[in-house]
Each structure stands twice: as C-alpha cells, then as structure tokens.
Design a protein around this nucleic acid. Sequence first.
RNA 1: GGAGAGAUGGCUGAGUGGUCGAAAGCGCUCCCCUGCUAAGGGAGUAUACGUUAAUAGCGUAUCGAGGGUUCGAAUCCCUCUCUCUCCGCCA
Length: 429
Amino acid sequence: MIDPKLLRSDPAGVAANLARRGFSFDADAFSKLDAERKALQVEVEALRKQRNDSAKQIGQAKARGEDPAPLLAAVQNLGDSLDTASQRLDSAQAELSALVEGMPNLLYDDVPDGPDESANVEIRRNGEPATFAFEPRDHVEIGEALRGIDFEAAAGISGSRFSVLRGGVARLQRALIQFMLDLHTNEHGYEEVYVPYLVEPHAMHGTGQLPKFAADSFRTDGERELYLIPTAEVPVTNLARGAILDAADLPLKFVAHTPCFRSEAGSYGRDTRGMIRQHQFEKVEMVQLVMPEDSADALESLTGHAETVLKRLELPYRVVTLASGDVGFSAAKTYDLEVWLPGQSAYREISSCSNFTSFQARRMQARFRRRDGEKPELVHTLNGSGLAAGRCLVAVLENFQSADGTVAIPDALRPYLGGQSALKPQSSA
RNA sequence: GGAGAGAUGGCUGAGUGGUCGAAAGCGCUCCCCUGCUAAGGGAGUAUACGUUAAUAGCGUAUCGAGGGUUCGAAUCCCUCUCUCUCCGCCA
C-alpha cells in the first residue's frame, strides 16, 4: 500500500510515477472521493458526539431522579440519521480502500523505463556459456535418460505441469536445497525458518498477492479459506505482521525452503515442456526486514547472496534490472538472475530479488522503534529466491551434461551426495 | 473428536448497562522535599483517524474479532477466533 498521506498531498506525483508502469491513477477522482469521505466522516462524528452527549445527560438525569422522557424524545430520530450517515461513510471508505489497495508500489527513480521485459537492462554477467562438441540436450531428455524425471507418472497423478523425480535426480534436488540453506545460514547470516504452506487470506493480503492476484494461487475448498503459498515470501514476511521490532534487532534475515504452488492461469502454452513452469516447485527464499535507509543497500547484498549460489555451482548467469513495466505489483525495484540453459540456448529467470520498501510493511503493520518513547516506523521488506531449486536442477542437468548422457556433479554439491561425482544414464528396463 | 476455563491499558488485575478510556498495584517519565548503600510527596504515563501550523487543544473510535439489543454496552444476547486444562487419537 502506498502511504495514504502521500496520496493526499501529492496525487499528481504518484500518478506520474505509476504511469511508468503503465498504471493509470486518476488523481482527480481520488481527491474527489477522499474529500467526500472526509465530509462524511465529519458528519458521522458530529452525530456521534450528539448521541454521546445526550446519553450522558440521560444518565445524569436518571441519577438525579428526574424524568428522562423529554431527553429521550429529543434523540428519537438520531439513531436513524446516524445509521444512514455511517452506512454512506462505510461505502465511501470501502471504495477508497479498494482503490488504494489496487495500486502498485511506487518505483525507484533508477528503474529503467520500458513497457515490458524486452526493456529489461542487463547489468552484469558471470561465467561463459559452455560450448558443447555435440548438440546439447534439454533436461527432459537428460532426465529421461537418467530415469530421473517422469512427467507421465506425474500427469497420471495430478495432470499437467507436475513432475515426479526419482533416484539420483531427486537426491540432486535435495542436495541443491541443502547446499543453499547451508550457504545462506553459515555464510550470509540468515536464520533458517520452517513455515506453514497454507496461509489465511490476510497473510496473502499482507504481501500483496490479494486482493488483486487471487487467480494466481490455489485456494482450498474446505470450510476455512486457505491458500497454498505461491512463495515462502508470504509466510516468512508475515512473521513480522503487527510487530513492533527493536531497531537493534534489525536487520532480520530469514531463509526458508518450501514448495511453491502456482495456478499459472493465463500462461497456457508457455513453457509446457519440462519442469520450467510447474504448479508445484521447490524454492529457497531469502527475506530481509530492514530500516528504511538501509533497504537500497540490502537489495544489492541480497542479490549478491543469490548470485553466490550460482557462482559456487559454476553456472553461467546474468543479472538484469526489470523495466518499469515488468516490475511486480508490490516491488519498487527488482533484479532478476537469469541462468544459462544450453537446452534452450537462452538465459532463463532463476531468481527474482526485490525491494518492497514500506509497501508490504504498511499492509501488515510491521514496524520498528528507533528509541524508547519514539513512534514506531514501518520497516522495509525485501526478498529474493536463493534459488528456485527446480530450475536450478534443470540448469545443473543441462550445463553439466556430456555426450554420453552422464551429468557431472558440481564440486560444491558433492559433499551433499556422499562424494558422488556424476549421475549415469540407466538402460531402460 | 469430547469436556471445561479464559481473553480488559507496557505488565498484574478490578469492573453494579449510565460522566469507564476504564479502579488499584507494578513499571516508566517529570517535579518537589530530602540528602546518600535510602525513603517520602505530587503530577503524568495507549493507539489510530479527523480537525489544525502543531507530536497544542477539541472530536470520534478502540476493553480478542464481528454482529445484535438499548437513548446509552467492557458490562446483556448471538457468531467467530485464539489461549489454557483434562480425556481421546495420532506423526
């Protein structure tokens, strides 16, 4: 949520910023609606005062043993007019908050302008895409040869966009996750957390997935309205919901491994082959809660933490700054890490690192206090994948393949696989 | 799954439908007195929103949440949530 005070004081400036996203904010309509709301609020409060005063007088009259009847008569119609006015106030407030909650975060000035991902700006690369003496296969072929990925079995159980992993490949994914968690906790100062995979609507609302993007997530069908988390960002960031933290405790840095569930509505036909775009995938997520003045630097270091994973795994990648039209709803600025996939001869997103400034914190009232007695301020929240384990598995399979179908294990992972140095193809039974 | 108890300000804990935003104690802040391994006295001590130059006043709301009854609800009624205890069942 954008600061309502800023919306009132500089609606034109907000509109100009959001226009860079291609989001149109009607500043005049907002100001008019807000003025209406104010007038109604003043009216309602005046009526309430009248009612409170009368009630008080009635009480006093009764205490003195006087007949309260004339006073009662005087307030007879007050209730009705109060009801009417407060109903109008409620609907004005509902309209206003729907408007404000539907507005994306303000962009940082250094976000490059552009309508979509084609305008994203590459800022650095690491590693060289390997050249193969043969036609590199994609992970689907590699996985089948290893008898390690079974899409047919998954389809039989859950339909399209699911996968079953077996044997060494399943273990390789687990090793990746372990490696990432150990790296972030031991070397980058994150605290590992284990969190619920089903969350209530208010948690989804806090991080910005609701109300606007309900269709992107899976919702349970039972008596309780629960959502399968689309990312660990939701439960982990919500750890600070309603909190008033001590400045001395900041920054808070959490890392969690969770499965992620996405409905992928509207992505029909995209990445239908393989495990690039699934309804369920594993991800290690980093979340930081920091003081406002530190969030810009924190985004750089958080992105660096994600990059370290790729460096240690010897995977070629590049970092891009998302263009204004491609930045997500809640973010003020986002870097994507894109890993090289030989099977596609393309860089593909494997991590997304964002600074949400106070946008999520305001929604979930996550605050901190600089000193005793001072007013609490909103924290800034950030998160980034560190990394998407499913896509990382794809990247390892494709980048470390050899002509005979063997896949070498990156050195960094071998301790997690009992020293194993390669996955060998299996002859089909 | 069954049975019961509870939820009040930073904490503990009162509260009869009527000056209750809420007693008292603790804690904290300031002042006074006093003077030194102290004690005593006094005042103050929630948050949000509106109004405003104002973190001054004033107003409104908030006693787990949401409804209802009433001129008036912390107090009565309904629904829900959470916490605790016991039993059962499990990982």
